[in-house]
Design a protein around this nucleic acid. Structure first.
Length: 510
RNA sequence: GGCCUCGUAGCUCAGCUGGAUAGAGCAGCAGCCUUCUAAGCUGCGGGUCGCGCGUUCGAAUCGCGCCGAGGUCACCA
């Protein structure tokens, strides 16, 4: 690339002119700001001390050196201490000729090197995917593709949280109030049907808690004593004891959810190489806890619970195993990390997980290090901020969410309406038009989500957030379509590069 | 309270490994469809880059201290 060439030559120039050896990092050029003439700019202020010249003079003699030694430097100008370098049109035309026919321009060949594991999505099976999952999925899928485009061997993995008290809540509510409803009998998508009963549970539970509080019980106690929550906990115990009735209900309802998720993922355009289920992996961490007990990294309380003391590292004491011997979240993540290490021996393990779990991942890495796992450093938590609504946080228990399926459907409808209004589908078959609406609607959504810094919280205003004009996905798609159109009209690309491109350049540069 | 993150135009966001007069889009106003696609283009107005101190030739960018917002410090995941 021309930047690298410029920078190397600047290092040479400084050596030759001022007898000073500098780090290549000190000779970085940047793109010239658009209101100045030139293509690349070097700020020479750091050199003036040993150049023993004014900034202007320093810039001028470096510019002369570059022009003399690099054939592609067509000229330069100096403003204050800024050296603006102009690259010749021949270079750009040559560059274009060289690369314009490359189908894989910008992509590195697959290296076949060590694997990078990217975990994303990680849904619970008690409710459908929402806007937060959209941000998660798009980030994870994009990062995987970017890594892959850089030649990395990438494995996209999903860890489905298919067990736990929240699943039991949906199950219990369906059992009690469902009346035998199924996705088939209602025409409701499986994940939505299950989510409906999760909301139902919460509504009924709140009523019970309110009644207990009215009867004079303290709110904290009421939340623990409400019959519904006790029943849900009982159901979880029966699940863990492999109670046949609970297991078959669990399998049936999870099956509905998976069918629903598959549709959502497909619509969104994301996929996975492998899916882990917590019900199958949640016991794996216990072996590591045993190991830590033996090595003395962990300690056991009188009640039998196991802890790690991280106060020396500036963290807290953290529970790793309950008194009854059951796993907690951290135990599971220790286990799955070890599984992935054993399976892929990855050079990097990326977790796309919301920033409310920053602390959890700091601790996870630290616990693994204390267990003598040097690969704990290969874990990277790709932490992203919450998607907020104008009225505040989304609350799925209260049904206060932007549903992923609904949102995508709205995007497609908006795309359809705008496209039809602009008359863009002339000569399209119904299938082509439908594919176009989806492409544009999804492009708008993806770009809207991905253009903001992952680590920042972002605001989503359902009414006005997603636009098709301005700095949007459809604008980029439109620009691409026009470029394709130009190329089509230009006929064969050789002819285009030779005859037509120069005429498209600004006059003063051709 | 401890720790972490964020604070840039009316709104949503770029810029943050230090560089020139801080940029886009939306919203507002004024123009532009017989050239390749107007989902576009051109122009105008709009800023104490939360506040203060420091480092530096130079700070939106780095450091420290305040203020404000969010997260977290669960035998939830």
């Amino acid at each position: 690339m021309i930047e690298k060439l410029l920078e190397n030559t600047i290092v040479q120039a400084v050596q030759a002119l001022f007898e000073q050896t500098i780090e290549p990092a000190r000779a970085v050029v940047q793109k010239t700001r658009k209101d100045f003439e030139g293509d690349y700019t070097l700020a020479v202020f750091p050199f003036v001390r040993f150049a023993r010249r004014s900034p202007e003079e320093t810039a001028r003699i470096i510019g002369e050196y570059l022009q003399l030694h690099l054939q592609w430097v067509a000229g330069f100008n100096v403003i204050k201490g800024f050296l603006n370098i102009t690259i010749s049109d021949q270079y750009w035309l040559g560059y274009f000729r060289e690369h314009q026919a490359e189908a894989a321009f910008g992509f590195m060949p697959q290296s076949g090197g060590p694997t990078t594991v990217v975990e994303y999505s990680s849904p619970n099976t008690n409710k459908p995917l929402h806007l937060g999952h959209i941000r998660n999925n798009l980030l994870g899928f994009s990062v995987a593709r970017i890594l892959s485009a850089n030649g990395k061997t990438v494995k996209k993995v999903n860890l489905v949280n298919d067990r736990g008290i929240h699943i039991c809540k949906s199950m219990l509510a369906w059992q009690r109030w469902g009346g035998g409803e199924t996705p088939e009998s209602t025409g409701i998508k499986g994940d939505h049907l299950v989510g409906k009963y999760y909301v139902k549970f919460d509504q009924e539970y709140r009523i019970q808690v309110a009644e207990l509080v009215a009867a004079g019980i303290k709110p904290d106690d009421a939340e623990k004593q409400a019959p519904l929550i006790c029943e849900a906990q009982d159901m979880l115990l029966r699940w863990e004891a492999h109670d046949e009735e609970v297991m078959s209900l669990w399998k049936m309802m999870n099956g509905w959810v998976y069918e629903g998720f598959d549709v959502t993922y497909k619509t969104m355009g994301v996929d996975f190489d492998k899916t882990y289920f917590e019900s199958e992996t949640y016991l794996h961490g216990k072996r590591l806890v045993e190991e830590g007990m033996q090595s003395g990294a962990f300690e056991r309380e009188a009640d039998g619970s196991v802890w790690i003391d991280l106060t020396a590292e500036g963290f807290d004491r953290k529970l790793l195993l309950r008194a009854d011997g059951t796993s907690v979240y951290m135990t599971q993540d220790l286990g799955t990390a070890q599984m992935r290490y054993d399976e892929y021996n990855p050079e990097k393990l990326i977790y796309v997980v919301g920033n409310e779990q920053n602390y959890h991942f700091d601790v996870l890495k630290l616990v693994l290090r204390n267990l003598g796992r040097p690969w704990s450093d290969t874990i990277h938590h790709l932490s992203y901020g919450m998607v907020e609504l104008p009225e505040g946080k989304m609350k799925s228990r209260e049904g206060k969410v932007v549903d992923a399926d609904d949102l995508m459907e709205e995007m497609f409808e908006t795309a359809r309406a705008m496209t039809m209004e602009l008359g863009k589908t002339e000569g399209f078959s119904d299938e082509e038009a439908e594919a176009l609406f989806r492409m544009i609607g999804l492009g708008a959504l993806k770009y809207f989500i991905l253009k903001v810094d992952p680590k920042k919280n972002m605001l989503f205003n359902p009414r006005e957030s997603i636009d098709f004009n301005g700095n949007t996905g459809p604008f980029i798609q439109y620009t691409y379509a026009r470029i394709r159109s130009v190329l089509r009209k230009a006929g064969d690309s050789e002819k285009f590069a030779a005859d037509i491109l120069p005429s498209l350049l600004p006059k003063e540069r051709s």
